[in-house]
């Protein structure tokens, strides 16, 4: 079991890019899901930028985007690509290396 309480002061800063395709329902859903996750778990320590690949196609080459939507975790390393509308919150958190289970456990006990 990994240790590390959630309120530790030296928690890493997150740099995130969310690549979406215009204003489709799926894009909107992904943006909404992402915002919520950031507010709930990364408050004050995240930098999220939403990129519309229709407007900025070269970004797909730069960031190796295949699927849409794709959330790229640039920092902290390792680099991760989280694809889909981010509706599976647990998988998103796992992909972001946020240990929800542990947090929950601690909260329940506390």
């Amino acid at each position: 079991m990994t240790e590390g309480p959630a309120d530790q002061p030296d928690q890493p800063q997150y740099v995130l890019r969310l690549y979406v395709t215009g204003s489709t329902a799926r894009s909107a859903r992904a943006i909404e899901n992402m915002r919520r996750i950031c507010e709930d778990h990364l408050e004050g320590r995240y930098d999220l930028e939403v990129v519309d690949i229709y407007q900025n196609p070269t970004a797909t080459i730069e960031q190796q985007i295949i699927a849409a939507p794709t959330l790229v975790k640039l920092l902290p390393s390792p680099l991760r690509r989280i694809i889909g509308d981010l509706s599976n919150k647990e998988k998103v958190l796992a992909g972001l290396d946020i240990h929800l289970q542990l947090d929950k456990q601690l909260a329940d006990e506390g």
Partner: peptide
């Protein structure tokens, strides 16, 4: 590097 977390398509590939 890839984590699947819901509905997606390959629109990224099309755009590229």
């Amino acid at each position: 590097e890839i984590e699947e977390t819901g509905e997606y398509d390959l629109e990224g590939l099309f755009v590229r």
